[in-house]
Amino acid sequence: MGSPSLFLDGTTILLLGGSRFFGRTILSELLASGARVVRLTRGLRDQDHPPQHPNLICLHGDRNDAALLADIRDRYRPRMVVDNILYHPDGARMMETVFAGACDLLLFTSTVMSYLNATLSGVSLREEQWERSVHAEGMEAIYGDGEIVYGQNKRQCEDILSHSKTLPSLILRLHNVAGEDDFSGKSSLIPRALWQAARAGRPLYLRGTPDHSYQQVWAGDMGRVVCGLLRRFVEQGRTGLADAYNVALPPIRLGDYVAMLLAGMDTPPEIRWVGEGIDRDNPNILSPYPRNVRLDPARLVRDLAPVALTPYADWLPLLMSEAARLEEGG
């Protein structure tokens, strides 16, 4: 995406987050596109050895510090803000207060966790259909209290930003983002279970059926997604852009997803599918999630063209390699 055209040449972008996982791909693509990036991170992951680039300014601090953000706004005057670490509605209100009238666009990465209130088998949710999916009923069967609160907070952040009259925003609703070096461990959940079962010579029990749907997006594509949408904004403004995008590959059968992982193993384990009501608390049964929550990515595919997302078959083998590395190393 960071082509010779350097479409963001000289444009200042404030990136909140960006020191790990898909945030690093966003940072790389922004720099490759010619942007001047001010990166604010909350942690100390690379404080002693931050990435080096002539167009990169690395700052460390609390993204919930309104005075700090106001100082960054006044000192660097970012044209756009990319926010990967907005988790609470108070933070959304603060962004609106600090950056109202001071930047052209806030791009906020949200989550499918905002909408896991039901088993939505066979139904693809489009960007304009979210009002029917606003409560947490049904989520407690799969997620812990903290995860449910996380999803509800993200949803409130979406509501605040999407209804703002003073801060133009673009919301990216991310399905499960999978990739190497995933600090959350979610990317390696199924691959590591397959690897462990194969090593132990036992079957792997999976909750659900092969016909359940499954959906992810490759972390390595996130920079291209963000920069592709920013390019459209720079070239056309809000004309033709949606207020929110579902970021995911089209859903596939869970059985096909697992089969692609198994294809990369010399001695794959036997897979046994387990019904929903059987041994729910059995620790030897893995529950892939979120099953049957289908986000319709058609709008993203259309508006992001000619940028294309990487197909499952191209990166699932990398997840297996990553799982083997993690198992062997720890």
Rank of each mutant, 00 (worst) to 15 (best):
A136N: 13
H49P: 08
A298R: 13
Y143G: 14
A141G: 12
S287A: 10
I26T: 14
K186M: 10
M95D: 05
A70V: 00
R325D: 03
R238K: 12
L316N: 00
T41H: 11
D211M: 07
D62S: 09
E276S: 08
H135V: 09
M80T: 03
G34F: 04
F7D: 15
L68R: 02
E322Y: 00
V217H: 07
K165E: 14
E328V: 01
Q47N: 10
K186C: 09
D62W: 05
Q129A: 13
L69S: 05
A305D: 12
L300C: 07
Y257V: 00
H175M: 12
V247F: 01
E147P: 09
W130K: 07
E127H: 04
R75Q: 10
D303W: 06
I148M: 13
P250L: 00
V293W: 01
R192T: 08
G223W: 06
R73W: 00
I13F: 10
N284P: 00
V123L: 15
V307A: 12
A66W: 05
A244G: 08
P168K: 09
R202H: 07
D46W: 05
Y150P: 13
P54S: 09
G2M: 14
E128W: 10
L120I: 11
S184A: 11
P283W: 02
N64F: 12
Y289S: 11
S110T: 06
E127Y: 02
L189T: 12
D303S: 11
R202V: 03
E327L: 01
W218F: 13
V37C: 06
L105N: 11
I160M: 03
R207Q: 10
V112Q: 11
S164C: 10
G138V: 05
T267W: 04
P311Y: 01
S287D: 08
R302Y: 07
Y143L: 15
L16I: 15
G146S: 13
P50A: 11
P306C: 14
S124E: 15
M222W: 06
T41W: 12
A70I: 02
R39E: 12
P317K: 09
I171K: 03
G220M: 07
R39H: 06
E327H: 03
R93S: 04
D46F: 08
M80F: 10
P50M: 11
S187H: 02
P290M: 03
G18F: 03
L326V: 00
D314Q: 08
V307P: 01
H135W: 14
L204V: 04
E158R: 13
V98C: 10
S114C: 15
D90L: 06
G18R: 12
T12E: 13
G185Y: 02
W273V: 00
M1E: 13
R132F: 15
Y289R: 12
E235I: 08
I26A: 07
P191Q: 00
P250G: 00
W195C: 09
A66T: 05
M222V: 08
A259C: 01
T310S: 06
L309F: 12
S33C: 15
Y87R: 12
R224K: 15
M80A: 04
P203H: 08
L172C: 04
R253L: 01
F7K: 15
